[in-house]
Amino acid sequence: MEGITNQNGMEPVLRFIDVSVSYTPGVYAVKNVSTAIYPNTITAVMGPSGCGKSTLLRAINRMHDLYANIKTTGQIILKGKDVLKTDPMEVRRMAGMVFQQPNPFPTMSIYDNVLAGYKLNGIKLNKEEKDEIVEDSLRNVALWNEVKDAMNKRGSFLSGGQQQRLCIARALALKPEVLLMDEPTSALDPISTNRIEELLLELRKQYSMLIVTHNMSQAARISDNSMFMYLGELVEHNNTKQMFTKPRNRRTEEYLTGVFG
């Protein structure tokens, strides 16, 4: 894709080739999407409600497999692997997901929440490895200092913003290739939102991220590239600065200037 920021000329970490998703046969929520995501970038996914942003994101880690009626076609290549032909469990470990509503596991302590990916996958770790993963992951999301004395408390006791950072830590603990975030700050107050944005900019050094957002200033603040979707199609995928200053498509321009959406 021309125009997309690819700071270090690397191979894409994620490729979409003619990806379509349908909830009902013949009706496509995502239509023929083809594009690429490069390492160490933040990509904002924008577009009016119902245009297929969540659907596209959830195709990457095969969340659609959980529901019998949903069909995904095309190819999604994550780190050289064809996602749709790989074991979904493996794919999901490679692609961490952060949801709109913070969803720490209420029956687990903060410590166990961070390690949940290992526990759920039946991966045995010794105490030192566990401690190290927990501390690293929580430092990564700047939550360590706030919770290091409350490791055994339930995750659900934290504030919304802390819970969301815990969920990011939980996803990062598995060392994924990409981080998929579906409106991760829309349920949070401005201060928590701000902290998460700073955090994402920090995490960009190690990870590639896709973030669905309705907040255009958020997209402008943190993303390198932006995707604009409309009625299931990827209308434009461009460097964020270019897209915000000189959109190539009329619909993108209308959306960004608030004519609709």
Partner: peptide, 19 residues
């Protein structure tokens, strides 16, 4: 959203039920 959270970490159905 709890179950999906667990699935998104690579858990199988049995593991989601159990944990």
């Amino acid at each position: 959203n709890l179950k999906e959270g667990a699935y998104s970490l690579g858990a199988t159905r049995i593991e989601v039920i159990r944990h």
